[in-house]
Computed example of a mutant assay.
Amino acid sequence: MNPWHEKIALKTNHPLKIIVSSLEEGFPTHWHQEIEIIYVLDGHMQIGINDVLYSLSTGDLLFVGSCELHHYLPNPLGCRKIILQLGKPIFDAYSDLVFGHRFVMPHLIAGSEISIDSGESLHGIIERHIVALYQEWETREAGHELVTKARINDIAAFMIRHLPMEAYSLQERTKRLEQLERLDNVLKYIESDYGSEITLQSAAEVAGFSVTYFSRFFKEATGSTFVEYVNSFRANIAMLLLTNNEESVTEIAYRSGFNSIETFNRVFKKVNGCTPTAIRSKK
């Protein structure tokens, strides 16, 4: 399941990936070692980080820390955005100042007044570098890779110097990674078996927890109940099928794991903000 159109993938010794997309079909809860920076070019979108939901508008920036659970909510109207994924080596000897930390203020709103030494806002500076980075790679003039690396280094330096962060304790970090490994098994289970019956009991067994503990653990980790997550995942699958498949709405409902059309229509509208037939009529 990959709704993102990967327009840019910089293959240098810097572990950087840039994704540019106008689609907003949603992306289920996931995590990775890289830090992610989202910049909204145009439109609106919602992103959940752990148990907090952020609403982003044009010009907003959002920082997702290493190993943080996050998911993208679908938006039928679409949203143009730039997503930067930065690996540890970009920060070189300073990586410990960023990785293993949580962002205290992950959401920088366009026009925010958080100023730094130069008098310019932190948002304005990082926005300027992201836009310049993208323009360099679009035009690809001679020396563009050198300029791209420079802009990435500028972004990294301003994050280290001015973006509020606090360190996880070693105990917190160890516990978090253990939880993520268990949760990862459950998320993979849902992704592979969403078309079949998935129960709280079976998921708890995959995680190696009791049903009671797993239910609480899943809610704390993802911000939603297990049933809500499975329904949302299935609704996202249905959205992809409706836009890329000629099967009937009824066939897609059952293929996505819903056992009744009534439930499918209700969940789909709640998750995607419109009915399945409205999506199909746009084709």
Rank of each mutant, 00 (worst) to 15 (best):
M1C: 03
M1S: 09
I8L: 12
I8R: 10
A9E: 12
T12P: 04
V20L: 06
V20P: 03
S22L: 04
E24H: 07
G26H: 08
F27A: 01
F27P: 02
P28C: 04
P28D: 06
H30Q: 11
H32Q: 09
Q33D: 02
E34M: 11
E34T: 07
I35T: 04
I37M: 03
G43C: 03
D51H: 14
V52T: 12
Y54T: 03
Y54C: 01
L56R: 01
G59I: 00
D60Y: 05
G65L: 03
S66M: 01
C67E: 12
Y72C: 03
L73S: 13
L77K: 15
G78P: 12
R80N: 15
I83Y: 03
I83D: 02
I83E: 10
Q85N: 14
Q85T: 15
L86P: 00
L86W: 00
F91M: 01
Y94I: 03
S95P: 03
H101T: 12
R102Y: 15
H107K: 05
E113K: 08
S121Q: 02
L122D: 05
L122K: 04
Q135Y: 13
E141Q: 14
H144P: 05
H144K: 07
R151I: 04
I152E: 05
D154A: 07
I155M: 04
A157K: 13
F158D: 00
M159C: 09
M159I: 15
I160K: 10
I160L: 13
L163R: 05
L163N: 00
P164H: 09
R173P: 02
E181G: 08
N185D: 06
E191V: 03
E191T: 12
S192H: 12
G195A: 13
G195I: 04
E197D: 13
T199Y: 08
L200I: 14
A203E: 03
A204F: 10
V206G: 07
G208H: 08
F209H: 11
S210D: 11
V211H: 04
Y213S: 14
S215C: 07
R216G: 12
F217W: 13
K219P: 01
E220N: 15
T225Q: 09
F226I: 11
V227E: 14
Y229C: 07
S232W: 04
A235F: 06
N236F: 00
A238W: 01
L240P: 01
L241N: 02
T243P: 01
T243C: 05
N245V: 02
E246G: 00
T250F: 07
I252R: 02
I252M: 08
A253N: 11
G257P: 06
F258S: 07
S260W: 11
E262D: 15
F264E: 05
F264H: 07
F264M: 08
R266F: 10
V267C: 08
K270F: 07
K270T: 14
G273E: 08
C274Y: 11
T275M: 14
P276S: 14
T277N: 12
A278W: 05
K283S: 14
